[in-house]
Amino acid sequence: MVISRKQESPKCDIFINKVKLKQTEKFKYLGTIISNDGKTNREISARTAQAKINFQKMKTILINKHISIETRKRAFQCYIEPVLMYECEAWTISKQIQNKLEATEMWFLRRMLRIPWTAKKTNERVLNEANKRRSLVRAIRKRQATFLGHVMRRGKLEHLVTTGKFEGKRNRGRQREKIMDGLAT
Rank of each mutant, 00 (worst) to 15 (best):
residue 75 A to K: 09
residue 45 S to E: 05
residue 170 R to S: 06
residue 58 M to W: 09
residue 104 T to A: 08
residue 28 K to S: 04
residue 119 A to F: 14
residue 36 N to D: 06
residue 51 A to R: 03
residue 144 Q to P: 05
residue 74 R to D: 06
residue 27 F to N: 09
residue 170 R to F: 11
residue 98 Q to W: 06
residue 70 E to C: 01
residue 102 E to S: 15
residue 64 N to A: 04
residue 175 Q to T: 11
residue 95 K to H: 07
residue 175 Q to D: 02
residue 31 G to R: 15
residue 119 A to W: 12
residue 69 I to T: 04
residue 22 K to C: 06
residue 71 T to H: 15
residue 160 L to W: 10
residue 124 E to I: 08
residue 55 F to A: 00
residue 21 L to I: 14
residue 155 G to D: 14
residue 176 R to E: 01
residue 172 R to H: 04
residue 98 Q to C: 13
residue 125 R to K: 09
residue 145 A to I: 12
residue 36 N to L: 07
residue 67 I to V: 08
residue 173 G to D: 04
residue 117 W to I: 11
residue 40 T to W: 03
residue 173 G to Q: 01
residue 33 I to F: 08
residue 59 K to G: 00
residue 80 I to L: 13
residue 47 R to E: 01
residue 114 R to I: 02
residue 180 M to L: 13
residue 177 E to D: 06
residue 154 R to Y: 05
residue 155 G to C: 08
residue 10 P to S: 08
residue 135 S to Y: 07
residue 10 P to N: 13
residue 137 V to D: 05
residue 54 N to P: 00
residue 96 Q to E: 08
residue 139 A to I: 03
residue 70 E to F: 09
residue 14 I to S: 02
residue 138 R to F: 05
residue 47 R to K: 12
residue 156 K to Y: 06
residue 138 R to K: 13
residue 152 M to G: 03
residue 157 L to E: 07
residue 18 K to L: 07
residue 73 K to P: 00
residue 129 E to Q: 15
residue 31 G to T: 01
residue 140 I to E: 01
residue 152 M to C: 04
residue 15 F to L: 13
residue 49 A to F: 12
residue 147 F to V: 00
residue 96 Q to V: 12
residue 116 P to V: 12
residue 144 Q to M: 03
residue 91 W to F: 13
residue 92 T to R: 06
residue 171 N to H: 11
residue 35 S to R: 09
residue 117 W to C: 13
residue 154 R to G: 00
residue 173 G to R: 00
residue 102 E to C: 15
residue 86 Y to V: 02
residue 36 N to C: 13
residue 11 K to G: 11
residue 93 I to Y: 00
residue 83 V to H: 03
residue 110 R to P: 09
residue 49 A to T: 06
residue 170 R to H: 05
residue 123 N to I: 08
residue 86 Y to K: 10
residue 174 R to Q: 01
residue 131 N to W: 14
residue 66 H to I: 04
residue 36 N to P: 02
residue 53 I to W: 03
residue 87 E to A: 11
residue 145 A to V: 13
residue 37 D to P: 00
residue 124 E to H: 10
residue 57 K to H: 11
residue 24 T to W: 07
residue 67 I to K: 09
residue 49 A to K: 10
residue 171 N to F: 15
residue 151 V to Q: 09
residue 128 N to F: 07
residue 89 E to L: 05
residue 30 L to S: 10
residue 18 K to S: 13
residue 68 S to F: 08
residue 46 A to C: 06
residue 178 K to D: 00
residue 105 E to D: 06
residue 157 L to G: 03
residue 17 N to F: 14
residue 90 A to C: 11
residue 99 N to R: 09
residue 75 A to M: 14
residue 93 I to K: 03
residue 71 T to Q: 15
residue 35 S to K: 08
residue 20 K to R: 10
residue 26 K to T: 12
